[in-house]
Amino acid sequence: MAKVLLAVHVLAAILVVGPVAVATSLFPRAVSSGGGRVTGEATGQQVETAGLLHRICRGYAAVGVVVPVFGIATGAQLGVLGDPWLLVSLLLTVAAGALLGVRILPAQRGLLGAAGERASTAVAARVRTLVLATGVFNLLWAVVVVLMIVRPGSTTGA
């Protein structure tokens, strides 16, 4: 049973977290037309692309709950639920989810709402803030992946 749970967990992580990581990274460029100029100066296609990327982020974020659920189930089956590497991974996963839900998705929605605005310093600053939040989001996932592979202190680790 542990192998089935682990397979579902890994597949869900690849198929759910991967697209969100890519879409969050592509969104700032799609909503900008270079130099931080926001969609008021971007083409209609850029606005459509940014809207699609936002919908991908929103949709996959909702489905993304399956990743930690199957991760916890796998950890319980393997008897490693109390291991520090797993607890840190869970905390980082919660932090990444919170960052996505509280900062990234609202920022994307706000920038899409600014589609008719002229480029401004304030909007450019919002794009830069989104880029930073997206970088932290992806870094959190990278650390979780490393912890899942290395599993420091785990008796099941490499």
Rank of each mutant, 00 (worst) to 15 (best):
Gly64Lys: 04
Val47Phe: 09
Val16Ala: 03
His9Cys: 02
Leu26Glu: 03
Leu15Met: 13
Lys3Ile: 13
Gly51Ser: 02
Glu41Trp: 09
Ala114Val: 08
Leu52Ile: 04
Gln45Asn: 08
Gly64Tyr: 05
Tyr60His: 09
Ile149Glu: 08
Ala114Thr: 07
Ala2Ser: 11
Ile149Asn: 04
Gly51Ile: 01
Val65Glu: 10
Ala2Met: 10
Thr43Ser: 12
Pro152Cys: 07
Ile104Lys: 03
Ala107Met: 05
Val67Pro: 01
Leu15Trp: 11
Val16Leu: 15
Thr24Gly: 02
Val20Glu: 02
Thr74Asn: 09
Leu53Asn: 00
Thr156Val: 14
Thr43Val: 02
Val65Met: 12
Gln77Ala: 15
Trp85Lys: 06
Ala13Lys: 02
Ala7Lys: 07
Val22Ile: 15
Ile14Ala: 10
Ala2Ile: 13
Arg58Met: 00
Val65Leu: 15
Ile56Asn: 00
Ala95Tyr: 08
Val38Cys: 05
Leu53Ala: 00
Val66Gln: 07
Gly82Ile: 08
Arg151His: 05
Gly110Gln: 09
Ala7Gly: 05
His54Arg: 11
Pro19Ala: 03
Gln77Glu: 15
Val136Met: 13
Val20Asp: 02
Leu78Trp: 12
Gly34Trp: 10
Phe137Asn: 13
Ile56Gln: 00
Ala95His: 06
Gln46Thr: 01
Leu86Ala: 06
Thr39Met: 14
Ile72Gly: 02
Pro84His: 12
Arg118His: 14
Leu105Val: 01
Leu91Ile: 13
Gln77Trp: 10
Ala76Ser: 12
Arg29Lys: 14
Pro152Ala: 06
Leu111Lys: 01
Leu26Ile: 03
Glu117Trp: 10
Val22Tyr: 07
Thr121Pro: 14
Gln108Asn: 02
Gly64Val: 08
Val17Cys: 03
Gly79Phe: 08
Arg29Cys: 03
Leu111Gly: 01
Gln45Leu: 13
Thr155Asn: 09
Pro84Ile: 14
Gly82His: 11
Gly82Ser: 12
Val80Pro: 03
Ala61Ile: 06
Phe70Val: 05
Leu147Ala: 05
Cys57Lys: 00
Leu90Ile: 14
Gln77Arg: 13
Leu132Ser: 14
Gly110Leu: 09
Arg29Met: 12
Ser32Thr: 09
Thr134Val: 15
Gly157Trp: 10
Ala13Gly: 04
Thr93Asp: 10
Gly40Arg: 04
Gly71Asn: 06
Ala12Gln: 03
Gly97His: 07
Ser33Leu: 09
Leu139Cys: 13
Ser89Ile: 08
Leu92Gly: 00
Thr24Gln: 07
Gly51Met: 01
Ala42Arg: 04
Pro152Tyr: 11
Ala61Arg: 05
Gly34Glu: 08
Leu130Cys: 11
Leu91Trp: 12
Ala98Trp: 14
Ser120Gln: 10
Arg128Ala: 15
Ile56Tyr: 00
Gly71Arg: 05
Val123Gln: 15
Gly34Lys: 04
